[in-house]
């Protein structure tokens, strides 16, 4: 249907060859964006893992004579107010953010899928109860829910992971429930019921494998949000403790230096932006591939 609609409107001003060309360009564009996004994300992860190998400097050791040096060859990103090499700190600083966001998306995907699948498959009272609970969690603006949980548990990476996980679970549960609900009506599930397959068998063999691709796409989209939340928490001082390098914390510590050393808050923030951008490109690309109705947009 989408094809018919599109060609009807495009016919007026574009010749067929150009149209075909445009279609290929768009397709290549999407794959390109997703590929570049994915590769860049991999690059960011590798950089933060291999930070000690990549940099000759120590991320924590104070070196006062070197303080607030502008970007130069020995210090590509300059130095901070304690004379520490900023590039080194940006390399190390991805660790808490990436750890928090990857683990919390993983945990939220597992928990949310479990809740959503159970609700969608069992239906009735269980469904009602679980979904009302999810509704209540969604009544908090997600950032606020994360802040509330950290407020209760205290600061630090493990608590930040719990906080971000909780704020992401409702979305996964909703998506998984909708998918599970539509799958239970599919013929192969109905047939499987008819030949006497048990509930767990159906969930394990039929529902979960079919849920997985859309959940992975959802997880990529949520990863962008998780990185944003994790860095917001550390910006607020609710993540790692100084002097541990961390992107959000570095922006927060550097913000009063904008008058004379803009590079201090600039580079860690740029790192967050580029990481989220890469995740968004990857997520958009994956979503377009999975959802054919969006492909021609």
């Amino acid at each position: 249907m989408a094809t018919v609609r599109r060609s009807r409107s495009d016919v007026e001003h574009t010749p067929a060859v150009t149209r075909q060309l445009q279609r290929w360009q768009a397709l290549a564009g999407q794959h390109l964006a997703a590929t570049v996004g994915g590769l860049f994300l991999l690059f960011v992860v590798l950089c933060s893992v291999a930070a000690p190998l990549l940099s000759p400097y120590d991320p924590i050791q104070i070196d006062i004579p070197q303080r607030l040096q502008a970007p130069s060859w020995p210090h590509l990103f300059g130095t901070d107010e304690f004379g520490r090499d900023l590039l080194t700190r940006v390399l190390y600083g991805g660790r808490p953010v990436l750890l928090t966001s990857f683990l919390s998306v993983l945990a939220a995907a597992v928990a949310g899928t479990a809740i959503g699948t159970l609700a969608g498959y069992l239906g009735g009272r269980v469904d009602n109860l679980l979904m009302r609970l999810i509704d209540v969690m969604l009544s908090f603006p997600a950032v606020l829910l994360a802040i509330l949980i950290v407020a209760a548990l205290g600061t630090g990476v493990p608590n930040a992971i719990i906080a971000v996980t909780f704020s992401l679970v409702p979305t996964f549960a909703r998506v998984a429930r909708a998918l599970a609900l539509s799958l239970t009506l599919e013929q192969f599930v109905v047939a499987s019921h008819a030949i006497g397959a048990s509930g767990p068998q159906i969930i394990w063999r039929h529902l979960l494998p079919n849920l997985l691709p859309p959940i992975i796409v959802q997880a990529t989209a949520m990863l962008a949000i998780a990185v944003a939340f994790a860095s917001a928490l550390s910006f607020l001082g609710l993540g790692v403790e100084p002097p541990t390098p961390d992107w959000g914390l570095m922006v927060s510590e550097g913000q009063r230096l904008i008058y004379d050393a803009l590079w201090v808050p600039f580079f860690p923030g740029l790192a967050i932006t580029l990481t989220v951008l890469a995740v968004n490109f990857l997520g958009d690309g994956l979503r377009d591939r999975l959802d054919p109705t969006l492909r021609n947009r």
């Binding site: 962008a224 944003a228 860095s231 917001a232 910006f235 959000g248 922006v251 927060s252 913000q255 904008i258 803009l262 808050p265 600039f266 923030g269 967050i272 932006t273 989220v276 951008l277 968004n280 490109f281 958009d284």
Partner: peptide
């Protein structure tokens, strides 16, 4: 648009101030 929704609030705020 993608760039916009990828920039953290606190960072764009600092950059706008600068």
């Amino acid at each position: 648009a993608v760039l916009g929704l990828s920039i953290p609030w606190f960072w764009i705020a600092i950059m706008l101030i600068f």
